[in-house]
Simulated assay, not measured.
Amino acid sequence: MEINHYEVLGFQLESIGVEGLTKLNSNEISKAYKSKALELHPDKRPNDPNAKSDFQQLKTSYDILMDVKLRKDFDAYLRSKYEEERRWQQWQQRRKMMHDPGEKEKEMDHQEKEMDMADFEAFKKGLERKMMADVEKKKDWLRHKFEEEKKRVLRRTHKFDEGEERRCKNMRAAHDLVIQEEKERKLRKMMNDIKKDEEKRRR
């Protein structure tokens, strides 16, 4: 009996395909193992004669998928097996078409639909590329406008700073002038007082 170690852990080949299985990371595998281990643990299946062997198989499958080399070998085997099955199905289909003209027409319709789908996918990809190019152009334009606005604001800020600095200098100069005038006034008053005292002494 062939064992699919991914399916032992609960992953379904039909759901995600061979490539999907082989792309599962270690965290996803560990999570699936823990969930399945809770389900298959022998303590939860005391009346099941296969409980122990099922749990052991689960552990074996988990160990294989967590080992890099063993998993690589198993993935290669799985891909080869899937490819063989796919070729066998194609051969069976061709053989059936040879004996049933109706099946041949169905196959041709199917191929036409696949071609239509391929054309649609090509158109969709082309449209997506064009949209992405338009988005990039819009981004470039916005970046350019942003840089221009930033430079303009910086220039205005620089001019404001220069004007503010001039105003501060003028205010400091005016303040210094007031202080100087006050000092001179006090000095003149003091000189006048001294002069008056001398005149009084002379009398």
Rank of each mutant, 00 (worst) to 15 (best):
E162W: 09
K159G: 07
E2W: 09
Q90P: 01
K69R: 11
T22I: 11
W88G: 14
V135R: 15
K189G: 05
Y62T: 00
D193W: 04
Y77D: 12
R155A: 10
K44C: 05
S30N: 07
L58F: 04
D134F: 04
Q57E: 09
E107K: 09
A174N: 09
D140T: 09
K138N: 11
K125C: 03
A51W: 02
K125P: 00
R155M: 08
D116Y: 10
Y6I: 00
R86S: 14
W88T: 14
R95Y: 07
Y62V: 02
S35P: 01
E147N: 13
R95T: 11
M131T: 13
K69Q: 09
F146C: 12
D54E: 05
A133Y: 10
K145S: 05
R156V: 08
K31P: 00
F120Y: 15
L58S: 01
L70K: 13
K169G: 07
E112C: 03
F120D: 15
T60E: 14
K96D: 06
R152L: 04
E103G: 09
K106G: 11
A118K: 15
N4F: 03
E105F: 14
N27K: 10
D109T: 15
E83G: 00
L38W: 07
E121M: 09
K59E: 12
K189A: 05
M108L: 14
E2K: 07
A32I: 00
K44Y: 10
A32S: 06
M131G: 04
H5A: 03
M171F: 06
A37Y: 02
G163D: 15
S26F: 08
Q57Y: 04
R188K: 02
K113R: 14
E85P: 01
Q93T: 12
K195V: 04
